[in-house]
Design a binder for these strands. Structure first.
Lengths: 210, 210
DNA sequence: TGCCGGTTCACATTTTTATGTGGTTGGTGA
DNA sequence: TCACCAACCACATAAAAATGTGAACCGGCA
């Protein structure tokens, strides 16, 4: 028996979901609330397996509710429920430890399936959500394009600079003279269009050269 | 009719998948290859809707194949296929524009469903993969914890350091004497446990102080 | 009230960086 | 073969940064 509690401000939907879930074999709705004002106490009292959390609620919204719960409980599964596959909310939800993110228009059968998946540790999401998540990821990491034509040796020097090595230490590490380190760094600065160590380090981080 | 091409080095699996997919209503396997050596030409020649790409292939592996395709074609759907829900590969795949990521042990029915979902723009993934993706996301954004008790003024100085300002420029920017800048920076170094500008900058980036 | 931390400034010294101007070697490609 | 460039090294000088010591002012807090 999977124990569920429910946060949803719309009375019709709250009733509907409760009936749907409680009426299904293997599921039980312990309680349903119309806001997150006492979410911590309620979760502690009912110890549910899965929480269905509407995002668009007046007062304390679902994301806030999620944060509150996760601050004290990292175990319980929390499924975020929303009408929109809104970019910002998706990001907020999953970076705050939501177990899954599903649309309200999900058909009843799928919904139950998702709850069950969440309970066993899966991360159910509708494919439209998954698409968003993937897009966010790929937009985040792809832009490493410019490597500024740094040579291998120059990259190595830059790497050590980033790790806080002084010229002397780099020379020792790379078995070359300190003056050679200097000339490498001079070239690096030219290629990166900077003129100080810290700028080079910052640029290395920003442009993900390292 | 969904047009599929297939990259898989294992002959049995290649044959099996081909038969499964081609034998299903609405699906057709145009071709199946055992490596990615000519992936660009092949994709251009067959113009498939969906590509099934094994990750663990000798020679040019699936991730490389993915990159090659995405370099010239951002439209075709590419489903990555693997035996492991390996963290690094998942990350690599989705940040390089994979349309979905599924395990080989996925049952045949589900597999066809996933291909169809991919074709219509969804992002199919098994729940175990989705869990990984979510974990990656939340681990990425949550850790800003340590702010090292920097005072407001110290944060401001650090901010300017990161942007490549010299002591002199910081003094001018903040309307204080250069010696004051020095003492701020000294304190910053103490709090961050570093002893050079570039280390401080690197730490600021790593720990997301800025 | 006295102490603490943040902020401000000053002076002095050493170390590190930045810049300039050279040079040698070895491999690559026209 | 010759030009080019990465990688190596040297010497010199100016600028910047790191370190040390000391001190004044202010606000909050015990």
């Amino acid at each position: 028996m999977i124990k569920v509690i429910l946060y949803e401000d719309n009375p019709q939907l709250r009733e509907g979901l409760t009936m749907l879930i409680s009426g299904s074999e293997g599921f039980d709705v312990l309680a349903a609330f119309k806001n997150c004002n006492n979410v911590i106490e309620e979760v502690a009292a009912f110890t549910p397996d899965v929480i269905l959390m509407d995002i668009d609620m007046p007062g304390v919204n679902g994301i806030e509710g999620l944060k509150k719960i996760r601050a004290v409980n990292t175990e319980v599964k929390i499924l975020m429920l929303t009408v929109f596959d809104d970019n910002k909310n998706v990001f907020q939800a999953i970076s705050n430890g939501a177990s899954g993110y599903i649309l309200k228009k999900t058909p009843p059968g799928k919904l139950l399936e998702y709850i069950a998946e969440a309970q066993t540790g899966g991360a159910p999401m509708t494919t439209s959500i998954a698409t968003q998540v993937l897009k966010m990821f790929s937009s985040m990491n792809n832009e490493k394009g410019a490597d500024y034509n740094l040579s291998d040796r120059e990259k190595q020097v830059l790497q050590l600079l980033v790790e806080g090595y002084s010229y002397k230490m780099i020379a020792a590490e790379m078995f070359i003279a300190i003056d050679t380190v200097r000339s490498h760094i001079k070239k690096i600065y030219e290629k990166l269009h900077v003129n100080s160590k810290s700028e080079a380090v910052a640029k290395a981080f920003k442009d993900r050269i390292v």
